[in-house]
Amino acid sequence: MRIASHPILNFPQQETVEFTYNGEALSGMSGEPIAAALHAAGIRTLRHSSRYHRPRGLFCAIGNCSSCLMTVDGVPNVRVCVEPLRAGMKVETQEGKGTLV
């Protein structure tokens, strides 16, 4: 859910782009972190942990904690809290550690 009006801040309208999340078509603002776009669309679970498959979402939103790792355009372990959204990105929840090779 996006903030419609704020007493102090103005949120300028950015270019909207389309992307997919686990195959589902979604849209977000170009250049915002992927995690912000997912959050605005109500998606909180970004991956599942390797051993106990516990749902994980955002924690630090600044690229420090590795809670938000997802697979983006086939590349695993992308910190979606800092990765900017681009048109046509394919975003998938990551199960476990992801395969690099």
Binding site: M1, R2, I3, H6, L9, F11, M29, E32, P33, A36, H39, A40, R44, T45, L46, S49, R54, P55, R56, G57, L58, F59, C60, A61, I62, C65, S67, C81
Partner: peptide, 23 residues
């Protein structure tokens, strides 16, 4: 303490004040 919906305070500020998303 690892459930989605548990954030550091800075994360909440980033979502709200930088990206205009309700945490």
């Amino acid at each position: 303490n690892d459930l989605p919906g548990i954030y550091g305070a800075g994360a909440v500020q980033t979502l709200m004040n930088v990206y205009g998303v309700m945490p």
